[in-house]
Design a protein around this nucleic acid. Structure first.
Lengths: 199, 199
DNA sequence: CCATTATGAACGAACGTTCGTACATATGAT
DNA sequence: ATCATATGTACGAACGTTCGTTCATAATGG
């Protein structure tokens, strides 16, 4: 996988994938043309087809193999902590770091849902689901600290914090005073752990 | 506004808007062609331009004037309850009813973000934001029951429950046993109010 | 030297939009 | 009431452009 050992073709393919990835994020799938991909990759239009069968296969490559769902997995795996509270805070901290990647992560999912109606989701979740289940198992292994809430709900609500955080960040982030966002995630975690009400 | 009093043109325009709305939801904006809209509206291709200046204006009409952000507003306005807990549960109950509409609501926002990079968002939020602020004011007016959490965070986290609920519903709903989703929202609200931890 | 990779012209299909035209309906004058 | 006129609405062929893809051919490199 060293830079030196790659063939010309492999380097070109990587370049195309990365260029396409950025263009898809900016314009969506149908909004991006093969000519744009070719131009930004410094390759002739026809040359792309030496490396990919079709435009859709580029997207599949981007969304399934290349990016960034799976960057989340190491963060889930690395999470640790003595108590549930420590564990949750640690996991959350790892997940919000490199926020840019996470926003892209979310946007890629939106593109998939909007333009392909979730048809790649099974392929992705085959890899993703076991990791989430393992995370859930570790998360909820010491039940004594947790209230009587089904484990899937706990995990969904945990994941939901990030959806809500990033989503509101995308939607209303530009309208909010910037210092507002500083420790929003800390508050979210706190609400998740202890709720909004006194006692 | 009576059915009888509408001109032919008004009826046609409404038909086009509704057809376009459904097609955009299914295929996204760039994935939907004017010919598809024409065909499903039982109108000639050129006839559309008697009612709309362009394809993009149809989308603007759909997303700004026609649908379904604003269906949420009455639910926010109607929310009531003596205690914070009652208020939250009542508001949540009103927001999750007619779930199909809400899923569409969310998907339209995704389409906007993916294919227009949020350029209609200001237009929408000019109407939407004051309603949310008013909701936040009523929500947090009795502070004694609430912990020391900034009001915007409280509202963001509240909204976030629905993002997370619908998002996980869209993404993994098909993989989960259906009885699973029954009272998920109740659990979410409970976590929001009291947290996941004992005590 | 032969497989790999790159080129860009070319293809047919599909795109959003415009156009000339025709029919229906409403308006206004007689 | 009748008829001339204006407006509203529908039609579908056609326009110019862009789309994804293919192909013959050339350059490159291991």
């Amino acid at each position: 996988m060293d830079q030196e050992t790659l063939t010309q073709g492999e380097r070109t393919k990587t370049e195309i994938t990365q260029v396409a990835y950025r263009l898809f994020l900016e314009q969506g799938y149908h909004g991006t043309s093969m000519r744009q991909i070719a131009q930004k990759s410094d390759i002739a239009l026809g040359g792309i087809y030496n490396h990919f069968e079709s435009k859709e296969q580029i997207f599949t490559d981007v969304i399934v193999a290349h990016h960034p769902y799976f960057e989340v997995i190491p963060a889930l795996q690395a999470a640790q902590g003595e108590t549930v509270e420590e564990f949750v805070r640690d996991a959350a901290g790892r997940l919000v770091s490199n926020m840019d990647d996470r926003l892209d992560f979310l946007k890629l999912m939106f593109i998939e849902l909007v333009e392909f109606n979730g048809q790649h989701i099974p392929q992705i979740f085959d890899i993703f689901f076991p990791e989430v289940l393992e995370f859930a198992r570790r998360f909820t292994s010491d039940r004594s600290e947790l209230r009587e809430i089904p484990a899937p709900i706990l995990v969904r609500a945990f994941i939901g914090m990030f959806f809500s955080y990033f989503m509101t960040e995308i939607l209303i982030g530009q309208y909010m005073p910037s210092e507002m966002s500083e420790n929003t995630m800390d508050y979210f975690i706190d609400i998740y752990l202890h709720g909004v009400m006194v006692n």
